[in-house]
Design a binder for these strands. Structure first.
Lengths: 167, 167
DNA sequence: TTTGACCGATTGTAATATGCAAGCGGTTTT
DNA sequence: AAAACCGCTTGCATATTACAATCGGTCAAA
């Protein structure tokens, strides 16, 4: 029974794995921002993660099976980080967290549009997005029927940014 | 713009408010365990929260509007902690976290049954439960039509515990 | 009316996590 | 050959956490 966890409660276990201020941020950036390299995650970070924290979180997420890493064939020092089924399955949690934050916290307009679309799209959209992430990160075969959710989210974000610059 | 938050992203903001190892545990115990006093939260804690951490989390959650506190008329030193609409609205997040933990982490049977029921019940059950929590914590009027979700979850938990003791 | 259990916290101390800046040896680009 | 970039580490200061003991006050029972 004693595996180092505080309790076997599903919510507690989820918190023990993901309940800190950075782990989900890293996964979010890989997932929604398609950042696949260390430097991409470091330099494009909206919240300004420190390099040592990023390094420790990537290591931890690898250990817990939420990410995988392969060498980048185009650059001997780069690694490519990918989501796993475990982290792709976090989409509903991200969607609900985004919806809750949108409702109760002082979100900025351009960063909230994706959360809003995910909430409105509901489970069917989440499933499409998860399938798309399996294609991107797990090498699954893409179904040409389903439109790209990733593209939709990006386009909506760009549209808000553009409209705000124009105003 | 500068309100002390790292960014205006809904997911980041949610993490800044709830992204630690204890805040959601405290809310979970109030919500699913109906613990309303400091000592109840402290002594019945499955994970063994320390008293100073509990005190600081309760204070923080009050400040963020996730809990309210009133004096207990039956005891001059006791306070009664209640959920708010903001924390009751966390039900979908708890449900999704529970479902994810159930699927990917080494949960214990008796503590996972409630997460399983919440997942199977889906949005309609969540809505019933949220309405029930409004009755318990916000003084809303109870609809005698809808059966008690709280009672269902408790009964299922007890049943698992009993069956395990019997085996 | 005394006693002992209980009340919501607070304090002290040590361990751990985080934030920040600089730098590592090496690779790739110019 | 020089400069930019690569993932990642180190050192150090600060903040958060864990753990145990304890606070002054309240309550119920003897």
């Amino acid at each position: 029974m004693e595996d180092g966890f505080r309790s076997g409660c599903p919510i507690n276990l989820t918190l023990e794995v993901l309940g800190d201020r950075w782990s989900l941020i890293v996964i979010r950036d890989i997932m929604f921002g398609n950042r696949r390299h260390f430097r991409e995650l470091l330099q494009n970070s909206e919240e300004g993660i420190a390099s040592n924290i990023l390094a420790s979180r990537l290591k931890r997420l690898l250990e817990h099976g939420l990410l995988t890493r392969v060498d980048d064939p185009s650059h001997k020092q780069k690694g490519i980080y990918s989501l796993t089924e475990m982290s792709i399955s976090l989409i509903p949690i991200f969607a609900e967290m985004g919806a809750w934050g949108n409702r109760f916290l002082p979100v900025s307009e351009e960063l909230s549009i994706r959360a809003q679309l995910l909430e409105e799209g509901g489970r069917p959209l989440w499933n499409d997005f998860m399938q798309e992430l399996r294609v991107l990160h797990l090498g699954a075969i893409r179904d040409p029927q389903t439109p790209s959710v990733f593209g939709q989210l990006q386009a909506a974000y760009q549209a808000v940014v553009a409209s705000r610059e124009g105003s």
